[in-house]
Amino acid sequence: MFVSVRDLKVHFPAEEGLVRAVDGLSFSIERGKTLAIVGESGSGKTAASLAMLGLHGKAARISGEIAIGDAQVVGASESTLRRLRGNRMAMIFQDPLTAMHPYHKVGEQIVEAYRTHRSVTRKAARQRTLDMLARVGMADTQRAFDSYPHQLSGGQRQRVMIAMALCCDPELLIADEPTTALDVTVQAQILDLLKDLQREFGSAIIMITHDLGVVAEVADEVVVMYAGRAVETGTVRDVFYRPSHPYTWGLLESIPRLDHQRDRLTAIPGSPPSLAGLAEGCAFRKRCGHAASVPDGLCASQAPLPTDIAAGHSIRCHLTDTGRAAARSNPRQPSASEVQP
């Protein structure tokens, strides 16, 4: 496996208790493949991706293992991390306007990224930048080079961010909700661009999103995150055709579908638990309609461990195979009164 994350934990000490933003996350990606991490707001997606680049501040307590090829991230020195960042792994962010420096020309920002890792002349870096700008579909590259971020449209800005991220030909690209801030049509263009570039550059991609449509579009593997943990991990087929965790069922239910007549969008009732000092038991139980079918109140007393239900398909849930089949044939959401605060 090219990228391998084992039992990653990102904890923040806070006044109301330890905030477990990421709590035992594991996944792996092969070269040239795309892994999607899906989850609601606050489920720890950004915290996990910042940990991949070693970008958390001193306040964060990070443990576990992150391997990018032969390089270890957790516990690595700042200079080792600097050689990895922007070079072997790069990141693009949700809001390209705030993610670019307002005072610097976008071309110069790419040149800076390139020259940080390659000892080349300014001229060569400039040429590389112009090539990259052309590659991401900027029409007038000279003009784009000399633009400031605020002079570009949202889609153009995200293209520039992608050019910046890919200029050193990274093996891993982390995209943290790269299309959330964009119009729907532009979203599709950016996703297509990423897929094209992946084919060309062969980078592995971690696509962070809360949009299952994006997952279906680009992902090979999927990690469904809830409250800092991976509740279901599998291929995109596993997750879409054989979803096995009650939370994933809820997520899939909430996709608006054109082929179904439906009165309203079924979102999962309730909201994610506070991550500070999570009690024992399954973090999803207060919103789960199936905890009652698990014997001995196990859902309340024990956190489910990751269990393989098929090769490469694993979930964190106490439901047995038969229990799951029964529950799936009778998909029910808890009524509002069942959702405890």
Partner: peptide, 24 residues
Amino acid sequence: DYVRTARAKGLGEQRVMYKHALPP
């Protein structure tokens, strides 16, 4: 965010501080 981007590019701390953070 742009300071985080500067770090994500692999820039050294001095450059992040004086070229990216200080002027704004």
